[in-house]
Structures are given as structure tokens and as C-alpha cells.
Design a protein around this nucleic acid. Structure first.
Lengths: 193, 193
DNA sequence: GAATTTTATTAAACTAGTTTAATGTATTGA
DNA sequence: TCAATACATTAAACTAGTTTAATAAAATTC
């Protein structure tokens, strides 16, 4: 049940078999149906999750009702609202399954337990947070410096697997443009070939 | 010399006096003149820094020669290229002093030493990275959902101290707009009052 | 399998932000 | 202290991206 999680951990830090097992035992398996929510705005995020199967989107709805997608998570990715989870304040985000999905969840209490009793777990999450942060910095620069057309092309090349599972509406919300404009971009690209 | 650093650490984690001292002793004091660089594109970032005095900007130059500012750092803020520092690969960023500045630097080797010998330092950097990441997530959402005018106003309200030390060119590069357009925004705001 | 909802496309008018270039004013530096 | 450089503003033509609305196709649901 936790094979994929174990492999994911091993990609970040070196843990003994016992440590890995003890940590993985803290997770609870959950099945989430397409269009169901793991988290809604206003709720405190009480978990950190690892996607075993399926696809999620983490997004915000602004005061004009537009959705901005912070990130997607497919198999082998982690999901949480790190802000709400760490500060125990109401979330401003939604986490929604875009496909029938399976996740492994760890509670705040069990994660604290791990931090105290399994010292290398602290390193695991430091390293993971660093990597996520680096990725977001790159995306920030891209959003500041590149046109939507280029961002679309690069997104399709960087995450081909994810790309073909997403509707254009979702991709547009991630790129920060309207789906109408994305349609224009797609037409333009198609006509070039 | 390290009073401000000690206070900053205490704001994030609980350390004993000895731990704090031992950690702070790993830092080296450096004075950086205005317009000098702590890091340039292509160099490997060999330090993590804490600003005691002055002002820095961390930015990227895209292939059209435009600068995107990732963040500013004044007194009591940390600076590094976390990507280059952790992976030991050439940086894509510049770190430049915008005022005569004083920083405390810790080398990669000494930071690794601290991680191994002062276990709570691992927590310190996990917590700090999390906070930085949350701030960047918020900025990402703002950039996707808000107009430049609103971002400008909110920036001035959120960081008034920093704001008045920056030229409009720097602010525009941070907001992701041209300084010409920023000038229009300023005119529009002024006429409203 | 018919009805409903969601998705993608197109068009046309619009707006936020860019580009280039000129001008005046502050700052900086030798 | 004077020349050079950096900064802020304005104008005008332009372009990237939005808005609204209509239509067709695809997917979902009962």
C-alpha cells in the first residue's frame, strides 16, 4: 500500500527500513471521487497528503470569482495547504480531485510525532519544501518574463503526462489566462505547423 | 555583532544559548558596497546570508535583457539562491546591493556541519523555508489575479519601509511591469486623491 | 438514450500593459 | 563643480490578453 510513498521518500533522504516503516504507518489511506474536495476555503487543513493515484488541483478563487491554480498533483506528488496546515488558520484554497483518486494522509499530530521521534523526517520535509520552493521561484520568473504562448508550450513539454489529462480550462487557469485566449494560442500554434 | 541574527533565530525556533552561539559563530561578517554583487549569474552560490544592514535585490535577466526581481532583502531578511546553493549548480540569479550593506554569511560546509551537530538548525531552516514558500505562493496568486495598480498599492502598504527606499524602476521590475506603465499608474492614483 | 451540463472554438469590441522616443530633473562621480 | 549617468514623466502607436456572446461538439447524468 505504501510502496510508492516509500520510494518517494528514498528519493529525498536516506532512512533505515524501520524508520521508513514507522513513518509510513502514520499515514491513512483515502479514496477521493472525481469532483470531490480534500479541502475547501475556510477549513483548516489538517493533513499533508501523498497522491498514490489520480489527479488533484489546488486553487484559489479571487473576489471576482476567477480561479487561479497554484499547482496540480498527480501520482507521486504531495499536496497540502502548507500555510493553513502549519499555522492552523482557515485555508484560502480548494483542493479538488479531477479524477477518481487515492491518497495517503498524515495528520498534524502524527507529523509532529515524526518530527520529534524520527529526526531524519525533519530533513525530509526541509528538502522537499526547498525543492517545491525552487520550482515555484522558476514559475514566478516565467510568469513575469514569458508570454502566455511560450508558457503554454513549455508546460506541455515539461509535464506531458499531466498535460494530456487536463482540460484547456484547467491549463488556462494554471497559466493565468482565459480559456478563450488559450484557444487563440492553440489556433495560432496549429497554423504554424 | 550577531545580536540581530540571534533575535531572528529566536523568532523561528527555540534554541539554547550555547546552540545559538555555536551556530552564530559559523557566520562571517561582510560589507558590500552599493552596486556591488554578492552573486552573479553563472557562479555557484556558496553562501546563505543574513542582512544586518542595507538593501539587496535578487533578480534574473531574461533572454531579452529584462530584469525580473524575485525579492528584496533588507535588515533582518535572509538571502541566497537556494537552488544554486543546494544543488551546487551555476546560478541564474544576481544578488546586488542597492545600498551600502552588511551581511553575515554561512558557507555550505558550515551549514552542513550545523545540520549534523545542531539538530534544531534543521528545524530552523525547514520552518524558514516554509514561511518563504507561503509568501511566494501568495505573491503568485496576486500576480495571477490582481491588476498592476492593485499590486502596486498593496506592495506600498505591505512593505512601507522597503517601498520608500526603492526607485520606481526597482518597484516596476518587482511588480512585473515597465517603469513607463508604473508612471501611468502613479499619475492615475495621484489624480484620484 | 434523451436531456443537461461542460468544453472548445470563433468573432468582435475592448483594456491593460508595452514600446519607442523625447524631455527635464536628480544623482553621482572624477 | 561640471559632465555624465540614472531616473521619472509624457505622448502616441501598438500588442497581448479580456470580455461577452453565440455555436457546436463532447461528456455526463438520470
Amino acid at each position: 500500500m505504501t510502496e510508492l510513498l516509500q520510494k518517494n521518500i528514498a528519493d529525498h533522504v536516506v532512512l533505515s527500513t524501520t524508520e521508513t516503516e514507522e513513518f509510513c504507518n502514520l499515514f491513512e489511506q483515502r479514496f477521493i471521487k472525481k469532483k470531490s474536495f480534500l479541502l475547501r476555503e475556510g477549513e483548516v487543513c489538517k493533513f499533508e497528503g501523498f497522491v498514490v493515484k489520480g489527479l488533484f488541483r489546488v486553487y484559489h478563487i479571487d473576489k471576482n470569482g476567477f480561479e487561479q491554480i497554484l499547482y496540480f498533483a498527480i501520482e507521486n506528488w504531495w499536496i497540502t495547504d502548507i500555510d493553513s496546515f502549519t499555522t492552523e488558520t482557515p485555508s484560502q484554497l480548494y483542493i479538488e480531485a479531477l479524477e477518481d483518486s487515492e491518497v495517503l494522509l498524515i495528520s498534524k499530530k502524527d507529523k509532529e510525532f515524526a518530527y520529534s521521534n524520527l529526526p531524519r523526517i525533519e530533513k525530509l520535509f526541509r528538502v522537499m519544501t526547498q525543492k517545491t520552493h525552487v520550482a515555484l521561484q522558476r514559475r514566478m520568473i516565467d510568469n513575469l518574463s514569458k508570454t502566455a504562448e511560450l508558457r503554454y508550450i513549455e508546460f506541455s513539454e515539461k509535464y506531458p503526462q499531466l498535460f494530456q489529462r487536463l482540460s484547456n480550462i484547467q491549463i488556462a487557469a494554471y497559466l493565468g489566462i482565459t480559456n478563450v485566449f488559450l484557444s487563440n494560442i492553440r489556433k495560432k500554434i496549429a497554423s504554424k505547423k
